[in-house]
């Protein structure tokens, strides 16, 4: 009995030391964060427990911390811009593509030679007739430049007639997180309309087809051109007309959403999205 009590006492003492160590470590972390300006409490409330222990004194306040992902974009670009892509082909020719300057859709497929999940796409692109892309939509494969990829390997994977540009800059310009990655550009609108990842090309082709149907049904390009030129009552009247044509009349409940479900439907019915548009790999 005595031995058990001694052992239990030793265990309790050991745990007490560990807890004390953890609390001390936690306090050190909080103090370090506070010194960096990321203290606990309302940053606008100087009377709370903010600033009384920091090295900057009672008047110090947390500084905003800016997080950026990847290199900053040039000031003339944003997340929907579609800059030109210039590089070399696997055979050593030079190629530049300007998706935002051409009419119709351009689908950029950012692929690598080494990624296992890219293999299915390389294989699918060998049969362009079976891809199921809408008429007029063009496919351009973008790999990293010859500094990161071996042109011979890219050439071996690329089927005949496939447009392939090797350009590391393009991966930076389009903020590509990894391969495979797809970006859909509406040349008439001059901007990116979707981007993301997918397991199979069928998923990508289906979303391109939907975008094409939307553009055809609603005249995306022409409508955009038209509404840019309109303003005020004229634009409001045009919007009303489009809504009426779609069967949405004044007082329609869809005009007054009260929850996310009203806008996007039940959570289980929503399409899996990655970033702004295309389906996400699972």
């Amino acid at each position: 009995m005595v031995a058990v009590c001694v052992v239990l006492g030793a265990v309790v003492a050991l745990l007490a030391v560990l807890v004390a160590g953890l609390l001390r470590s936690h306090a050190d972390i909080l103090k370090a964060l506070h010194d960096l300006g990321a203290g606990v409490g309302d940053p606008l409330d100087g009377s709370g427990h903010q600033g009384h222990a920091g090295v900057h004194g009672a008047g110090s306040r947390p500084a905003p911390v800016t997080f950026t992902m990847g290199p900053p974009l040039p000031p003339d670009r944003d997340a929907s811009s579609a800059p030109a892509i210039a590089g070399v082909t696997p055979t050593g020719d030079a190629l530049a593509v300007s998706p935002a300057g051409s009419s119709g859709f351009t689908l950029l497929a950012f692929l690598s030679t080494g990624c296992a999940s890219c293999a299915g796409f390389w294989d699918a692109f060998r049969r362009p007739a079976d891809l199921g892309l809408p008429m007029g939509a063009r496919l351009v494969v973008v790999t990293k430049g010859p500094d990161r990829e071996i042109p011979g390997e890219v050439a071996a994977l690329a089927g005949p007639g496939l447009s392939v540009v090797m350009s590391s800059d393009a991966w930076t310009d389009y903020e590509v997180p990894g391969s495979p990655f797809f970006v859909l550009i509406d040349g008439d609108a001059g901007r990116r309309i979707g981007e993301g990842v997918a397991n199979h090309f069928d998923q990508v082709a289906e979303l391109v087809r939907r975008a094409d149907i939307d553009a055809t049904a609603f005249g995306a390009g022409t409508r955009a051109d038209r509404t840019v030129a309109m303003d005020g009552p004229e634009r409001e009247s045009d919007n009303d007309s489009v809504l009426r044509q779609a069967g949405i009349l004044p007082g329609d409940p869809s005009l007054y959403p009260t929850s996310l479900e009203d806008l996007y439907g039940p959570p289980d019915a929503r399409m899996p999205l990655s970033r702004t548009g295309l389906g996400q790999a699972s």
Partner: peptide, 24 residues
């Protein structure tokens, strides 16, 4: 401005231009 260079030809393409420099 996209820049192309191959086979002894250089081009700085104005905005909106595409290009290809190749040899048969």
């Amino acid at each position: 401005m996209a820049q192309l260079r191959a086979h002894g030809i250089r081009a700085h393409l104005p905005t909106g231009f595409e290009g290809r420099i190749f040899r048969h």
